[in-house]
Simulated scan of single mutants.
Amino acid sequence: MAQRTLLVVLAHPDDESFPMGGTLAKYAAEGARVTLVCATRGEAGIPGLSAADTAQIRTRELQAAAAALGLADVRFLGYLDGQLAAADADTVVGQLVNILRAVGPQTVITFGPDGISGHPDHLAIHRMTTSAFDQAALPARLYYLAPSAATLQGCGVIPSQELAGGSVAAIDVADHLVTKVRAIQCHASQDPPFSGPPEIEAERLTCHEYFTLARPIVGNDTGWTDLFEPTLMRTS
């Protein structure tokens, strides 16, 4: 059986850990190859530090978090934090199409149209990843991170109610919450909310992370429990 491959396309270091670290840890632990594409190095994320110094710190933090989660590969697109929406969309989409075709994932995850926090970079990477996915025309599934208790805990903001339609997958991450906390704590510059012993902090986290299936469109079913589940390809 071919190795399962998951591609995650996000905007900043820490986007992978705070809202969805349990899911990434789960699939990595189960043997899937998980590749993360990060559009920026989080250059605007540490007040009082230069963009260059901040980028170095946050790159190291992301690499440590990726190792904790078991990710196979981390790739940066090279855009500045806070300026992704101003980048040439065709160029970014072209980069992503090339990555999609090179990685050949069965499943892709990015932000939904709400961006969870509404950050302009989140909204931009949502649009660009969706466009790239459609252009790449791979036999794959595209999921959007859905607002939930997990994103509220991880991002610290009340999620937008602007939800993308489609089937919702609920991923049980109970066995991977300690790993999620360890990955969150790698992002020390972002003052992670769960700073105590990981085994204790994990008890405070919700056990499910949620994703909305954007491609293919199969209706508005609920109850999916696997982002790779073949029956997601059924027609409604």
Rank of each mutant, 00 (worst) to 15 (best):
A183G: 02
T179S: 09
V74M: 06
P198Y: 04
V178C: 11
P120N: 06
F18S: 02
G82F: 02
F76K: 05
H187D: 05
I200V: 15
E199P: 07
S50M: 08
A32M: 15
T225L: 07
A52L: 12
L10T: 01
Q56G: 05
L77C: 04
P230D: 01
C207M: 05
L100G: 09
P113F: 08
A183F: 11
I46R: 05
K26H: 13
D172F: 12
V168Q: 12
G154C: 13
G70I: 01
T59M: 01
G78P: 07
W224D: 03
R75N: 00
V178N: 03
Q190Y: 05
D226R: 02
A132F: 07
L24I: 00
V108W: 02
I184P: 00
A66P: 08
V34H: 09
G78L: 14
Q56Y: 00
A65K: 03
L24S: 03
A51P: 08
L96K: 07
K180I: 01
F194E: 00
L213T: 09
A164G: 10
F111N: 00
D81M: 14
A170K: 06
G156S: 10
I125Y: 11
S148M: 09
M20H: 11
G219P: 10
G196H: 11
R101C: 10
L227A: 06
P113E: 01
A67E: 11
S195C: 05
A183C: 03
A44C: 11
H187S: 08
A25K: 07
L100M: 15
L100W: 05
I158C: 01
A136D: 03
A86D: 14
T151R: 04
A202R: 04
G22D: 04
P193C: 05
P198K: 05
G31C: 13
A170Y: 08
I57G: 06
F76N: 02
V181K: 08
M128D: 07
E16H: 01
V103K: 02
I158R: 07
L177Y: 10
R75M: 12
T35C: 15
R41Q: 15
H122V: 01
A72Q: 12
L227H: 08
G70C: 08
T130K: 12
P120H: 09
E43L: 12
P147L: 05
R41S: 07
L100D: 04
P105K: 00
I217Y: 15
D134W: 11
E201F: 13
R33Y: 04
S167I: 00
G219C: 12
T206R: 14
R182Y: 01
I125R: 13
T40V: 12
